[in-house]
Amino acid sequence: MAVTLYWMQAGGCSGDSMSLLNANSPDLLEILQELDVDLLWHSSLSVANRTSQRALLERLQSGEQRLDVLCVEGAVIRGPGGTGMYDTLHGQAKKNLIWALAHKAKHVIAIGTCASHGGISARGDVEGTGLQYHGRKRGGFLGEDFVAGCGLPVVNLPGCPVHPSVVTQALSAVVHGATLDLDAWQAPTAWYGTTVHQGCTRNEYHEYRVEEREFGEKGCMFFHMGCNGPLVRGPCNKLLWNGRSSKTRVGVPCFGCTDPDFPKSFPFFQTRNIEGLPIDLPDGINRAHYLAYKGMAAAAAPERLKGRESNI
C-alpha cells in the first residue's frame, strides 16, 4: 500500500523544498518511487488532479483519507495576537489546519529549523513557533505531550535549510520502520549526533588554534569569525552540500542554523569573547582545562600551520 504524504508549507522561505530538489542518490523522484510514496500535496510539486486541495483537506480531516506522513516546512505562524491571520489558506489561519492534520497523521516530521524550533520565523513580529519546541523550550505549537499516531513525538530535522539527504534518509527510515534514536531536541542522532566541526577541512588549524581574522584566510574561524562548527550538531561536513563542499570548508563561518536558538541575537560574523577567548565552548567542556589545552596547542602549532602552508 502506498505511503501517503502531505507536505505543508507554513511560515518559511521554501528553502527546504528547494534544497530537497538537489538530493542525489537517491534523488527526490527516485526516493518517492522506491518508497511508493503517494504525494498527496506539495505546493511546488503537486501532481495536478481535479480534486482540489480543499476537498483533500476535508477528507484528511474526516479520516476518509489516511495520512501516513505529515511534513511541515516553516514555522507555525500565530500572529497577529494569536489569530494566525498573518498566514492563511482559503481565508483561514493555516495554523488550525496544521493542528488538525498533525492529530491525524501517523508520523509528523518537522522539516527545517523553522518547523522544529521556530527559527528565523520566530524572531519577527509574526509570532512564529516550532511544532513541538519554541527555541529551546519544549511545547511549541502542538504541546509537550503531543505524540503522533505512531507513538513518537514530532521528529525534528533542523537546518536552514535541512540537508536534502537527511530528508530522503529520514523518509526511508520512517517508511521502513527503522528505529530513529532521537536526541534531547527530538532530532535523530543518525544525522545530528555529530558536530558541524567534524569533517571540516580546517580541523588541523582548529586543533592548534591557528586563527582566521580576515575573510579568505586559511585558518580556524571559531576563535574570531563567529564559527559555530564546534558548538552545534549537524551533518554539513559529513554529507557535504550539493555533493561538493560546505560553508566552513569554503571559508564561511557556521552560523549554527540547526541550533534551537538559531538565529542568535548577537552578531554572526564575530565570536563572543572575553580577552580574546570564546565565551561559548563545545558542549561538556571544562572551561579551565579547555583554555589550558588550547594555550598549549597554540604553543605547539607547527610552522607549516602558522605559515598557512597546509591546505584546506
Binding site: G15, F215, K218, N242, S245, S246, K247, V250
Partner: peptide, 22 residues
C-alpha cells in the same frame, strides 16, 4: 555555487569587499 560558496541555498559567502571563499 557550492564549489564557490559552500552550499546552495543559504550561503553567506559574499561579504563587503568581495567573497570570503578560499
Amino acid at each position: 555555487v557550492a564549489i564557490l560558496g559552500g552550499q546552495w541555498p543559504h550561503s553567506s559567502f559574499m561579504v563587503p569587499g568581495g567573497v570570503a571563499s578560499a
